[in-house]
Simulated assay, not measured.
Amino acid sequence: MALKVGDRIPNFKAIDTKGDLFDSDTIIGKKAVVIYFYPKDNTRVCTEQACSFRDQYEDFKALGAEVIGISGDSLKSHIEFANKHQLPFILLSDSDKKIRKAFGVPNDYFGLVPGRTTYVADKNGIVQLIFDSTSGKIHIEKALEILKTM
């Protein structure tokens, strides 16, 4: 079942770019969060999206939100991607697609490409926005828009 607005973000664990085990319980239910799923490191649209989140990261922090990027890429790929583009937010490897499945993120392009979906949850962990678009930059605008109303 796909998450809907009003649902609580499920608990998940994954390895972050520091090699540490990230547990969503350390953030979910404590502060607002923007979790974005993207298809692949170092592709044009995914890089634009990540760099847009990077460039506006301080805006997210000022609104009390943490940003988490998730894709099926390996930890090694995420580390290189984060270092190359100086990404200040959390990147998680979901190589077994368990997190993607827990959220119910759909695939794009006739099921061939992992979907690009952003979830914004309030400080209680309740989903306030689900935005699904193949255009990367719009995700940042939509996430900031909803955070300003919370």
Rank of each mutant, 00 (worst) to 15 (best):
Thr17Met: 06
Val120Leu: 06
Lys4Gly: 05
Leu147Phe: 04
Cys51Met: 10
Ser95Lys: 08
Ala143Met: 11
Arg116Cys: 11
Lys13Thr: 11
Pro10Ile: 06
Ile90Gln: 10
Lys101His: 08
Lys76Gln: 13
Ile9Phe: 01
Lys61Leu: 11
Met1Gly: 04
Gln86Gly: 03
Pro106Ile: 13
Lys31Val: 01
Phe131Trp: 14
Lys98Val: 04
Ser133Phe: 06
Arg100His: 03
Ala14Ser: 13
Asp59Gly: 00
Glu48Trp: 07
Gly64Ala: 10
Gly64Met: 02
Asn11Gly: 08
Ile90Lys: 14
Phe131Ala: 13
Gly64Ser: 05
Thr26Lys: 15
Phe131Glu: 15
Asp94Asn: 11
Ile15Tyr: 00
Phe81Lys: 08
Tyr38Ala: 13
Gly104Phe: 07
Arg8Lys: 15
Lys101Tyr: 06
Asn107Thr: 12
Asp55Arg: 08
Ile126Lys: 09
Pro39Asn: 13
His85Met: 05
Ala32Arg: 14
Glu48Val: 10
Tyr36Lys: 01
Asn11Val: 09
Pro39Arg: 01
Lys76Ile: 03
Thr134Glu: 11
Lys30Ala: 09
Lys123Ala: 08
Val34Arg: 06
Phe89Cys: 04
Met150Ala: 07
Ile146Asp: 01
Ile15Gln: 12
Gln56Leu: 08
Arg116Phe: 09
Lys76Ala: 14
Phe22Trp: 06
Leu87His: 13
Phe60Lys: 04
Val127Asn: 05
Asn124Lys: 14
Ala82Pro: 00
Phe37Pro: 09
Lys98Leu: 04
Ala62Lys: 11
Ser77His: 03
Glu48Thr: 12
Met150Val: 13
Glu145Arg: 05
Val45Cys: 07
Glu145Cys: 09
Leu21Ser: 07
Ile126Ala: 03
Met150Leu: 12
Phe81Tyr: 12
Ile28Met: 00
Phe60Trp: 02
Tyr109Asp: 11
Thr47Pro: 00
Leu21Asp: 06
Asp55Tyr: 05
Asp59Glu: 13
Ile130Gln: 05
Asp7Trp: 10
Ile68Ala: 07
Ser74Pro: 02
Leu147Ser: 07
Arg8Ile: 11
Thr149Leu: 09
Lys40Asn: 14
Pro10Ala: 11
Gly72Arg: 10
Lys31Ala: 07
Asp108Phe: 15
Val34Phe: 04
Phe131Pro: 00
Tyr38Cys: 04
Lys142Cys: 05
Lys61Trp: 02
Ala62His: 12
Phe89Ser: 04
Gly6Ser: 09
Thr17Lys: 02
Lys76Cys: 11
Lys31Asn: 07
Thr17Glu: 08
Val34Glu: 07
Ser24Ile: 08
Ile9Val: 15
Thr149Pro: 00
Gly6Ala: 11
